[in-house]
Amino acid sequence: MNESQHLSSQFDEELSRLRTHVLQMGGMVETQVSAGIEAYSSGEVASVKSIVEADRKINDLEKAIDDDCAHIIAKRQPTASDLRLVLGISKIVTDLERAGDEAKKIAKGVRRIYEAGHMPSQYGIGIRHLAEAALNLVRQSLDAFARLDVALAQAVIKADSDVDTEFKSIIRQLITHMMEDPRTITTSIEIINIARAIERIGDHAKNVAEQVVFVVEGRDIRHIKEPTK
């Protein structure tokens, strides 16, 4: 193997390692979100501390990946698709870190509800269904990134609007609760904040999917609205 081939092989290994770290970070965010929703359903608020601790690890991983991206750009001076991959990864990890922050908000909101002696399940609100839909978007967006699958990425982008619609429905139900019984206001507001955090997790998954399209096709589709029919 000559020097040029050796350097190329090293570069491929660095890019592969970078992608692996992104998927590792994504897996941690998935676990965080899932744990927060499980706590909402079960009332096992002991997991909140571990969710908050996991958020610190996600933050550290984001910094490490950002450093690796900067190092690769400075040292390797990648072009074309390789440069798009590195730039896309730097944006993807920002969205994953923010999704982790939203998971932490969910966990803390759950703790406040149960510590106040309330049971969110009594409200009959479809938080768990909303969360499972958003979590599925996170999984699919990471799968799209792992396989650089544009079709799957576009499916995630389209499906995010369903999460937004469901979120609005939950808000309407909670407003009705508050109007009918003012005693529910405090808990309803906490559930609204949890629902909003879940909806934002869906948004971050959509952003990851948009970066997959950018990495593969070089198209920046952020902020482009679907044409109305």
Rank of each mutant, 00 (worst) to 15 (best):
I58N: 04
I89N: 01
Q77F: 00
V215Y: 02
E190Y: 13
V212A: 09
K105T: 13
I125G: 01
R183G: 15
R98I: 06
R111Y: 07
V150C: 03
V216T: 09
R172A: 11
M119R: 15
V86W: 00
I198H: 01
R139L: 02
A159D: 07
G27D: 04
E199I: 05
I175N: 14
L7T: 04
V156R: 04
K91S: 06
I65S: 00
A195R: 02
K63M: 15
F11T: 00
V52Y: 08
G202A: 06
V212M: 09
V48G: 08
V156L: 03
S42E: 07
I175Q: 13
F214A: 10
M28A: 13
F11M: 00
Q24L: 13
V33Q: 09
T94R: 15
H204I: 10
M25S: 03
V150N: 01
H118G: 11
V52P: 06
M119D: 14
V110H: 08
G202E: 01
A39H: 04
E30S: 05
G218A: 03
I37T: 10
R111H: 11
M178W: 01
Q154C: 08
E62D: 11
A197G: 06
E44S: 13
A80R: 12
V208Q: 05
G117I: 11
R111D: 08
L18C: 00
D12Y: 01
A197Y: 01
D55V: 05
Q154A: 12
L148N: 13
D220M: 03
E226Q: 13
E44N: 13
R147M: 12
G218K: 09
R139P: 10
L7W: 12
E38R: 15
R172E: 07
I191R: 01
P78E: 02
A134S: 12
K158E: 10
T187P: 07
S121A: 15
H223L: 09
R98A: 02
R84S: 04
R19E: 15
S188L: 15
D55N: 08
E199K: 06
D60C: 14
E97K: 02
A131S: 12
L142W: 11
G117N: 07
I185P: 08
G27Q: 02
